[in-house]
Design a protein around this nucleic acid. Structure first.
Lengths: 339, 339
DNA sequence: CTGTTAGCGCATTCAT
DNA sequence: ATGAATGCGCTAACAG
């Protein structure tokens, strides 16, 4: 195992010179720096993480907590965890995965043992126990998502309200007067991240403000299809659909419409809001304001690293503006539908 | 920050006594042990990871590598990563996530910096560069999956051959004489883990051995449905289906059959092989020999920890016997089909 | 610009 | 059964 001392000897300098030459934390003559780097390279030297952490009081590791309910969608979680990991590497940080049943214990442990320099909290629920815990820990914590009680916390999230409003606005502008929101199942609404609820509320409010008819349907936990069918049976006048639901349900929308002879966008305009694209699967063929991990996770890591390094003051909620991905699924309402 | 010294003082003993009392690595009188534990509890003491690792030459961390191709299925990957993480915690290990573009660099780095005590390699390809790397590293490595060149490596995987054979056998026993395997797309066959290929080969061999007709269809990358339709168009005599494909494709099988008026199992028997159940989604309504992370990951971690602790000798390929999950999707072939 | 040195917090070896 | 002392490999403060 090659240590800093080996490098120092090889380069003919002191170990502190090696340390500084490699970390760049103080000025070193170009000449010796080259020698040190060359020696390190030659010996294949890399500072041992534990020694570095002990002496430097920084582990260069961030932890990620993701609660995993039985019915949780792994795909989206992985996408977020990966986005964090990738972003962390940009800052030369590694990522520790905390996915035990008791997220709280994991967070406590990492903080107490100084396993990580900071924690990113994913899949935040409206009433998330990790919020209170984060306030108690000495450790920097950034939430990707906004708990209801976010006093004193640092949070970052997509601006779902704005995304929903823009979706409604897109449909309204196209002349649609009767809209429906395909939302999450009751179970998700009840306990998961609070954004589905925020979307529902915003949807209703926006529609009302513009004098549009608005309906909300929530698929039952066990059925992926059927929701849209039932909706169209009851309300054949609906011409604009907003999708913010499980991917299986969203996948079933196209076929369901097709089965009724309804084409998108001629007979039905569709916009997705807050749906996470799944790598490896075909993207939804609808206009979308996606909940893309890339929108929030890199920013969350930037924030966290900033706090760790003392460059950034913790606290505050940051909402990231939604991005519109057009896919041609919104068209002007047809005349005969307007009557 | 409370250190071991604080605990020693509080308990009125030396720091080595505290260390031993807490680690149990040498005999301590019950009396003092209690005092130490009480003191530690009172002060909320937890040994700092970095100090522990530096002095003890063990980080209590294992790293997990998962390559992430663009078309990779995140859901399954997450399930595996989580299974490893959960299993690791049972051994008091934490998990570091390595998911950079260059898995190799990540592995090298963790080994060189002693970031982790060992590495679990997931989503192993037939021709996996990590195999060669693993042989070079000093660091214990366990593969969940079997690279073609596994000389000197420690691998553990589901016994896909046996799973496939049992699937064919189940169909054969029920009287089916014309089978089809719905496999992966060409792209996956070409580069991903080698098990799809192993399944295909075993399928053909098993069918041949029993004098059954066997066909293989591979969905194209972009279509989820359509494969089964095409299959049934061309070969209406098929009465037994083996599924080992993307979950979207598998999901499309039921509806496709239904559309043709074919019922499961009356008109068509179906068995899934090597498909990973997705938590949060509805399980396939078919008999299955699943590729469940729980079958391999905990065992892989056990192995790895064993190697780390010197209890287990590295090397060798372990195949885990498949588990049959019955769901009533296999029935005796109907007479009129046999003719 | 470079070298010397004092810990970082703990596991462990050697005494007792 | 317990304590004292050593050092893991590195960073950073201090001294030139």
């Amino acid at each position: 195992m090659v240590t800093i001392e080996d490098v120092a000897r090889e380069a003919g300098v002191s170990i502190s010179t090696v340390s500084y030459a490699l970390s760049g934390k103080r000025a070193i003559s170009e000449e010796t720096r080259r020698r040190v780097v060359a020696a390190a390279e030659r010996l294949g030297y890399m500072p041992k993480a534990a020694a570095r952490a002990l002496a430097g009081k920084r582990t260069h590791v961030i932890a990620v907590t993701t609660p995993l309910h039985a019915d949780t969608d792994h795909s989206a979680h992985m996408a977020f965890a990966m986005a964090v990991t990738t972003a962390a590497r940009e800052h030369d940080f590694d990522t520790l995965l905390l996915v035990q049943d008791d997220e709280l214990e994991g967070m406590r442990r990492t903080a107490a043992t100084l396993l990580a320099d900071g924690i990113v909290v994913l899949d935040v629920a409206a009433d998330d126990a990790r919020a209170e815990l984060a306030r108690q820990l000495r450790c920097p914590v950034v939430f990707v998502g906004v708990p209801t009680d976010n006093e004193g916390l640092t949070c970052i999230d997509l601006d779902f309200e704005r995304a929903t409003e823009e979706a409604v606005e897109a449909l309204r502008t196209a002349g649609h007067r009767s809209l429906a929101l395909v939302s999450q199942g009751q179970d998700v609404i009840d306990r998961a991240s609070n954004y589905p609820l925020r979307i529902e509320r915003t949807f209703v409010a926006a529609a009302e403000r513009h004098g549009l008819e608005a309906r909300i349907v929530r698929p039952r936990p066990d059925t992926s299809t059927g929701v849209v069918e039932a909706l169209l049976d009851e309300h054949p006048d609906v011409t604009g659909l907003v999708l913010s639901t499980r991917s299986e349900v969203a996948d079933a929308v196209g076929p369901a419409l097709e089965r009724r002879g309804l084409r998108v966008p001629e007979d039905m305009s569709v916009v997705a809001v807050g749906m996470t694209p799944e790598p490896g699967r075909q993207p939804l063929p609808f206009d979308s304001f996606p909940l893309d991990p890339q929108l929030t996770c890199p920013a969350a890591v930037d924030l966290l690293v900033g706090i760790i390094e003392g460059r950034v003051v913790p606290g505050g909620v940051q909402l990231v503006p939604p991005v519109h991905q057009a896919r041609g699924s919104v068209a002007p309402v047809r005349m005969r539908d307007v009557r």
